[in-house]
Amino acid sequence: MTEPTTAPPEDAEGAEQAENRALLALALEAARRAGALLRDGRPDDLGVAATKTSSIDVVTEMDIAAEKLITGFLSERRPDDGFLGEEGASSEGTSGIRWVIDPLDGTVNYLYGLPTWAVSIAAERDGVRVAGVVEAPMRGETYHAVLGGGAFLGERRLRCRPAAPLEQSLLGTGFAYVQSVRAHQASVVQRLIPLFRDIRRGGSAAIDLCDVAAGRLDAYYERGLNPWDLAAGDLIAREAGAVTGGRAGDPPSRELTIAATPELFGPLQALLEEHGAWHD
């Protein structure tokens, strides 16, 4: 009598990893197309009257158009997947895969003609991020990662910076647009800045997280991020060897997001807790 055979666990793992890479390939192409749309469709004089409603409307229209491009591209190829997007894309799907999309991270930079803006796309399987892309067209850079497969800038594998003491570390952060919240965030920075080499504010959470992965920042933290702001960048940072989290024992969240070299994560988390960086 022939015994029934079952695939060994490693075969299932291999199939899952192959699907993750297929998801990454789709995310790379969708991000490339959306990045080109945003780069080539931006009027040259958009930032001249940056306070005018008409200028803001153009940015919103580009944001929505980029998200529609991404969701349309992915839906054609994977119609059973779900979506969560900054501009309203939301569906559960039936495949267990959900795409988390920020079509334009760094909208104020985009409005003013600054290069630090990006398209961020992550794929989650049953709530676990398995592939992520951050496309920064004006920097000519594409960051990407697959769970368990490392993080890359183009073809170059990324590693976060080697250990450095607090006073020799470069820290990134961001600020909310609500004035009362910004005032508290500024008071936290005031306490932190004497302890670090310096502090940077880039204006795109997705790129800040990738800069930790690439060793351009030793650490980064921010309060107020949404899932689409951090989904791809968090995976890329972790796959580059960084530690990410929120308050002690918590994952990155709207309350607090931290990414840092392994040696710096604990001390930074303790400082942020001490100074109340997790509340307004």
Rank of each mutant, 00 (worst) to 15 (best):
R191S: 04
K68C: 03
W228C: 08
P4N: 06
D198N: 15
T51M: 09
L158C: 11
N20W: 10
R223P: 11
A118L: 11
I121G: 08
Y112V: 04
V178R: 15
P194S: 06
G132L: 09
L147T: 03
L235V: 00
R161P: 06
T244V: 14
L38D: 01
A18S: 08
A242F: 01
R42V: 05
A259C: 13
E19D: 08
S169N: 13
R157T: 03
S187H: 09
D105E: 06
L271P: 02
H184M: 07
A131I: 00
S95T: 04
G82P: 11
E273V: 09
S120I: 03
S75G: 00
E92C: 04
F83H: 12
M1W: 00
M62A: 07
V108M: 08
L158E: 10
V181P: 04
L217E: 12
P267E: 08
M1D: 01
D208N: 15
A277F: 05
D63T: 15
I64V: 14
A136G: 08
W117K: 07
A186V: 09
E29G: 05
L209H: 10
A123F: 03
L195K: 13
G132E: 11
L166V: 13
G246I: 06
E16H: 04
I258M: 14
E16A: 15
R200P: 02
L171R: 11
R129D: 04
A240S: 14
Y220C: 07
D105L: 12
L23A: 02
R161Y: 07
E239V: 11
A136S: 12
F83K: 10
R77G: 03
H184I: 03
A151D: 03
G149P: 04
D81Y: 05
G276T: 00
R159Q: 15
T261I: 12
G88D: 08
P43R: 07
V189G: 00
T6K: 10
L272C: 07
L104H: 01
T142D: 03
G132P: 08
S120R: 05
A31H: 04
A232G: 09
V130P: 10
A214I: 10
G203Y: 05
S253G: 15
G249S: 05
D44N: 08
A49D: 14
G88L: 02
R125N: 06
H184Y: 10
P103Y: 00
C160H: 15
L84F: 15
L84H: 14
R238M: 02
P162N: 13
H275F: 11
P267D: 09
S54M: 12
L37V: 00
